[in-house]
Structures are given as C-alpha cells and as structure tokens.
Design a binder for these strands. Sequence first.
DNA 1: GCCCAGGTGACGG
DNA 2: CCGTCACATGGG
Length: 270
Amino acid sequence: MVEIRNGELDIRKIALSGQCFRLNARADGRYELLVHGRALEIEPIEGGARFHCGAEEFGALWRAYFDLETDYAAIRRAVDPADAYLCAAAAFGRGVRILRQEPWETLVTFILSQRKNIPAIRGCVEQLCARFGEPIADAGANAFPTPESLANAELECLLGCSLGYRGKYVQAAARMAVSGELDFAALERLPDDALYETLLSVSGVGKKVADCTMLFGFHRLSRFPVDVWIERVLAREYPNGFPLERYGGFAGVLQQDIFYYERYGQGNRS
DNA sequence: GCCCAGGTGACGG
DNA sequence: CCGTCACATGGG
C-alpha cells in the first residue's frame, strides 16, 4: 500500500470531475480505477489517498497517472486575486488534478460524450468494455477495448452499446487507428496546433472533443475546452473574454475547476 | 411523458 | 462567417 498525503489530491472530486469514466465509487466509500490492465483500489483519506498496490507498481503506473509531479498548489496560487469568481472556483476545485489518461480511450470516450450526460457516458463505456474488452485479472471487469476490437466490431453491435449516432464515429476512429492514420505514439510528439488539426480530421471530433482529448489524453494543460457549462460562465463572468494569456500554460486546470464548481458548487445540482 | 445531456456536421443565408 | 437543424438514447 502507498499512502500519499497531498491536499491537492482528492479522489472523490476527481471521480466527479467528468474527465474519466472508469474511476468508480464503491459502496464502502473506496474507489476502483480500471485502467492499464489493472483494477486499482483507492481509499480516500483526509488530505490524500491510499493506493492499494505495491510501491513498485505505484511508481511505474500511478504516480504519473495522477500527475503527482505537477505542483497544483502553485497553479491555483497563480489565480488573479482580483478575480473573485476564479478564486472561488479554484478553492472549490482544490484536489482535482488532470489525469494522464490513455489517448485512445480518451478520444473514444469524448466522442461518446456529445449530447450525453455523465452517467450515460459511463454506461456506454461500461457496455463497450463488457462486450469488446479483454478481462482484467481478478477484477470481474474488462479493460477498455483496443482499436482492433472496435474496428472489427459490427456496427450493429456497437449500436447495442447505446452509442446511437456516435457508433459510426467510433468505428471510423478505430479503423483510422488500426490503419496507422492515427498513430498515437507519433501524435504524442506533435506540437499543439498539429495535434489539434489531426484530431479535428476525425469524423465526429470537433473543437470541444479535440480539446478534451488533448487535455485529458495528451496532457496538454494549456487547452481550454468550451462546453455548454463553460459557455455559460464565459457569458456570465467574462463578458470581455477569459484571460487565457495570463493562464496559458495551465488554463486547462482552471477549466476543470470552473466546470467542477459550476456542476457541484454553491447550491448547484448534484 | 417530457426535457435535456461535457457537440458535430450539413446546409442555408 | 453565422444561425439552424437533425442526430439516437437514456437519465432525471
């Protein structure tokens, strides 16, 4: 077991933050994370978390996945003290981090996300994993499907996972990945603008999904996805525009704080 | 039953 | 370039 004491690590908030869909709360208050062919048990504690795995596995997989080398306190300290709204959002979001998710899984889950609420996205992802993923040892759950398995899937079977009109997008993306037209190892090395253009070339991927994929799947912290929630905030709080230039290097972290604050803060619905 | 969901692509002006 | 509309389906 590895215990991390860090006030900027709140598993409950991360699980609610809408960036990942396979970090699941269990009835006993612990969490199960299904990724990297593993089912990791995580126990939230006051000011941190206990990871139920060995030190070697933690160092090999989870230190990076939870982005523990990045100083989120410094990022939140950099918020303009004169910006009362952003200060409140950053304080409320303390503990949220930007996970380093797998690019392929991130691309597919955010293609699925369009015009769906978060519980529905989770449901689709679980159905896809159950039907097309490889079993995870001793977990009673499957890994996220490979591009090959989705490229070979009948469209009819994909539609059976409640994908609706997104099914053809997922199938096309899978075939691009199998053909090498989307080479995720190569995409990692592209500069932001080239990566963005490549992602936009995928059918069913527009600005918002491309930005979410870049932020959550390629850890491009400067990306600032604008969805309906952020749109409302920009109109209400930033009529002259959000100061992206001030926060350029880590605007995506603050975007997550804003999203989380709008969803769950000050009397907003749960 | 009704409304809406972490949007996108196609089309018309 | 901008506004509209269809798109499938399930959760609240």
